[in-house]
C-alpha cells in the first residue's frame, strides 16, 4: 500500500498495555470511601475480638470463684470467725484456696459509697471470704453450707451465678453487635464497589463494546474490572488497616493506663489481631473483586 511495505516491519517491544485504563478522577473518591469502610471494619473486628476475649476472662473470673459473706453476730468476733471458716473451706476438695478478708478490707470496699472517714464501729459490716476453685463446675456449696451451719454462723454464699448470667448475656449481645456491625460494613463496602463497578462499566462502555465486537466473552470483560477493583480493594484495605492499627496501638498504650476504661474491653495486640489486620487488604480486595465481577456480569447479561 505504501513504501512501508518495502521494509520488514518490526513489532514494538514491551508487554501488553492495560485494556482498562486507570481513571484517577473516579477512583480516588472510591479509594477514600473504601479505605474508610475497611478502617471501620477493622475496628469492628478488633472490637468483636476484644469483647470476646474480655467476656471470656470475666466469665473465667466469675466461674472460678465464690464469696462467703459472714454477717456479724452479737458477742462473736466476725474477723476470727472468717479466719476459722476460711481454713476449713480451704481443706475441702476442689478448693484452691480460701482467703478471709477483715472488717477493714470490707470497709475499704465500701469507701466509694461511704467515703474515707470510716464507718461507725457499731455498724454491722459483713466480713468476706474469697474462695478460689479448681473446677468451676464442681462448686462445693453443700459442704460450705454444712461448715457454716456447724459453726453456727449466719452467712450468705454467693457463687456469682446472677452476675455470670448477666455478663454472659451482655457479652453475647456485644459479640452479636460487633459481628453485625462488621457484616454491615462489609455489605456496605460490597454495595459501594458494585455501584462503582457499574458506573465504571458505563464510563468505559467503549472498551467493553470494542472488546465484545472482537469476540471477548463476558467473563473476559468482567475479569478486567475484577482485577482493577481487586487492586483498588487491596490498596484501600492496606490503608484502612494501617489506620486501624494506629488507633488500636494508641488505645492499647493509652487505654491501659486510664481508670475510666477499666470496665471497657481493651483493644489487644496479640498475633491474632496482627494477622487479622494483615489479612484485611486481601479480604477487602476479595470483596471488591467479587462484587465488581458479579455487578459487571449482571450488567452485561442484560445486553442480549
Amino acid at each position: 500500500m505504501s513504501e512501508d511495505e518495502k521494509s520488514p516491519p518490526a513489532p514494538p517491544s514491551g508487554g501488553h498495555a492495560r485494556l482498562l485504563p486507570p481513571d484517577a478522577g473516579r477512583d480516588r473518591p472510591l479509594f477514600i470511601v473504601s479505605a474508610i469502610l475497611v478502617f471501620l471494619a477493622c475496628l469492628a473486628a478488633l472490637g468483636a475480638r476484644s469483647t470476646w476475649t474480655s467476656s471470656e476472662r470475666w466469665m473465667d473470673d466469675l466461674d472460678g470463684s465464690l464469696t462467703v459473706q459472714i454477717r456479724p453476730i452479737e458477742g462473736r468476733d466476725a474477723d476470727q470467725d472468717a479466719i476459722d471458716i476460711a481454713r476449713e473451706i480451704s481443706e475441702l476438695p476442689g478448693v484452691t484456696r480460701a482467703d478471709a478478708r477483715s472488717r477493714a478490707d470490707s470497709e475499704m470496699l465500701l469507701e466509694p459509697w461511704f467515703g474515707t472517714s470510716g464507718l461507725p464501729s457499731d455498724l454491722p459490716v459483713p466480713v468476706l471470704i474469697d474462695v478460689v476453685l479448681d473446677d468451676p463446675d464442681g462448686v462445693p456449696l453443700d459442704e460450705i453450707a454444712d461448715i457454716l451451719e456447724t459453726a453456727g454462723i449466719d452467712a450468705d454464699i454467693d457463687d456469682h451465678g446472677r452476675w455470670s448470667d448477666a455478663v454472659a448475656r451482655a457479652s453475647q449481645l456485644a459479640r452479636l453487635l460487633a459481628f453485625g456491625l462488621l457484616a454491615l460494613i462489609l455489605g456496605a463496602a460490597a454495595a459501594v464497589i458494585a455501584f462503582a463497578a457499574r458506573a465504571s462499566l458505563v464510563a468505559r462502555r467503549d472498551v467493553a463494546d470494542a472488546l465484545h465486537i472482537v469476540g471477548a466473552t463476558d467473563s473476559y470483560v468482567a475479569g478486567l474490572f475484577q482485577r482493577r477493583f481487586f487492586s483498588l480493594g487491596v490498596k484501600a484495605g492496606a490503608t484502612g488497616a494501617i489506620f486501624a492499627a494506629l488507633i488500636a496501638i494508641l488505645v492499647a498504650v493509652g487505654g491501659n493506663n486510664a481508670d475510666a476504661l477499666y470496665f471497657l474491653p481493651e483493644l489487644l495486640f496479640s498475633p491474632f489481631e496482627i494477622v487479622a489486620l494483615a489479612m484485611a487488604p486481601l479480604i477487602a480486595g476479595g470483596v471488591a473483586a467479587l462484587s465488581a465481577r458479579l455487578a459487571v456480569e449482571e450488567e452485561l447479561r442484560k445486553r442480549w
Binding site: P12, A17, V214, G215, Y220
Partner: peptide, 23 residues
C-alpha cells in the same frame, strides 16, 4: 471505535489478545 489509550499495534492485535493468544 479504537481504544485511544492503546497504540496502533495494540489496537490491531486486540482480537488476537482477546482470543488468548500470546503476544
Amino acid at each position: 471505535r479504537m481504544l485511544d489509550h492503546l497504540s496502533v499495534f495494540e489496537n490491531v492485535a486486540l482480537p488476537l489478545r482477546v482470543a488468548g493468544q500470546k503476544r
